[in-house]
Design a protein around this nucleic acid. Structure first.
Length: 404
RNA sequence: GGGGAGGUACCGAAGCGGUCAAACGGGGCAGACUGUAAAUCUGUUGGCUUACGCCUUCACAGGUUCGAAUCCUGUCCUCCCCA
């Protein structure tokens, strides 16, 4: 497949990016690549500590996918070396180190999930332990000599932590260097990353210059705000929509985003074309309800297909809007004829973690049997063989209890 | 190396011998309301228990005391100032 013209490429590449440094070098690289029909080397690093990918990750992975479709060579780095030591970046805490085995498994799982977005056949996968592990202490010192303390503490999160008197371990300074070394080793032309990675990407650029390479262009995408509407999407904030989630959860969670995120979501995590995007921007404010449903459907469709997306929509209408019982709910067998305490049942089907929690939910009116509110935590019931009853706990936990 | 300040529940942060399972805020969960799993309001937020009560928890390990998150000793960890 031939590499398209620079203009065509730029159109695709620019969508949903927040910054490209430097722009003119990107154009230059694209030009050369087009003239020689020689693909550029696109680098994306991933951290295999948390293997559950969500829409936030999808933003940058989709960017990677676009480069694949444009005919470039894409390299996914599994940061196994860095993960084993415990990368603190972004957070204000040192992350726990992982074992070799965990890292390998996480990396595998990461790639599996990422394959929903990337073209797996066009993705070169490398582990950075391959070249970082064999480095000697001397090599590391030499590498470190290419960067200064002053520039290091320019990094935003270091500055903040330093001002807050938070701990910064010395080895944390080596992380950007390790990531930069990846760029040097791979001779990358473009490195992709979220805007929070800007510093790290720039270090790679700097180091490549130091080693007389053509420095990489850094392409940053914005951080996707999570469903809570104020923090970046992250598993640890529990404001994420996972790409492995059920159609129902995906649909419902998408509807829970604040209205002002409707447009950014369309732009960053869906494939709708430019023209449609323009229309949606206006529609998102004039008709937020329907536009948000459209968004939820579009996202669910991307990961689960039309049929499931339709089902998810009707599921939502039924359970949330009409407060009805959904079609597909898990079934649980209970012993017939005997008295069961509602607390015991809720616990045995894992709807609550403890009796205390169950008691609280009952007292607060969050538990129903066949639609009837249970108010007494001591409530008991018995069912004859073959009979069933629908248990609802909280907003979203449904179960069909069948007597056997 | 010397001096000082700290480590409290999911997070931030009060408490400084009993009335502490531990104020307050954030987050979570639930209820009401809603186009919505949004916003807002209300309630709730260690475990066992119908309850009285009991058990585990305030960095870790010991100790003093009728009684400790609170006092003492040691250990580990963090921050600040000086060198």
């Amino acid at each position: 497949m031939p590499i398209p013209t620079v203009e065509k490429q730029l159109k695709v590449i620019k969508r949903g990016t927040v910054e490209i440094v430097p722009m003119d070098e990107l154009v230059e690289k694209l030009k050369k690549s087009y003239q020689n029909q020689k693909p550029l080397r696109i680098k994306l690093g991933c951290d295999p500590t948390r293997p559950d990918l969500h829409l936030g990750h999808s933003v940058i992975l989709r960017k990677m996918r676009q480069f694949q479709d444009l005919g470039h060579h894409t390299i996914l780095i599994i940061g196994d070396f860095t993960a084993m030591i415990g990368d603190p970046s972004g957070a204000n805490k040192t992350r726990p180190a992982l074992s070799r085995q965990e890292v390998v498994e996480n990396g595998k799982s990461y790639f599996e999930q990422a394959s929903k977005i990337l073209d797996p056949d066009k993705t070169e996968i490398v582990y950075n332990s391959e070249w970082l592990s064999p480095m000697s202490f001397e090599d590391v010192i030499r590498l470190a000599s290419h960067y200064t303390v002053a520039r290091m503490i320019e990094r935003d999160d270091f500055t903040k932590r330093y001002q807050n008197n938070d701990t910064i371990s010395l080895h944390e300074f080596l992380y950007p260097l390790a990531q930069g070394q990846d760029s040097v080793h791979l001779k990358s032309d473009i490195e992709l990353g979220g805007i929070d990675q800007k510093f790290n990407l720039l270090v790679g650029r700097h180091l490549q210059k130091e080693f007389d390479q053509s420095p990489q262009v850094c392409l940053m995408t914005p951080l996707l705000i999570g469903t809570d509407g104020n923090q970046k999407m992250s598993k640890s904030y529990d404001n994420y929509i996972g790409i492995d989630e059920t159609p129902e959860d995906m649909y419902g969670k998408t509807l829970s985003i604040p209205d002002n995120l409707i447009y950014p979501y369309f732009e960053l995590v869906t494939d709708v074309d430019e023209e449609a995007l323009r229309l949606l921007k206006e529609k998102a404010t004039s008709d937020p309800r329907n536009t948000k449903h459209e968004l939820a459907w579009t996202i669910t469709n991307m990961y689960h297909g039309v049929e499931k997306a339709d089902q998810a929509r009707s599921h939502f209408e039924k359970t949330v809007v009409k407060k009805d019982v959904p079609d597909d709910i898990p079934e649980f067998a209970i012993v017939s004829g005997e008295h069961h305490r509602i607390l015991d049942i809720m616990k045995s089907v894992n709807f609550v973690a403890s009796n205390g929690e169950g008691r609280r939910l009952v007292t607060q009116g969050g538990v129903t049997l066949n639609g009837e509110k249970i108010t007494d935590p001591q409530h008991e019931f018995a069912l004859d063989s073959g009979k069933e009853v629908i248990l609802k706990v909280g907003k979203r936990k449904f179960g069909r209890l069948i007597a056997k």
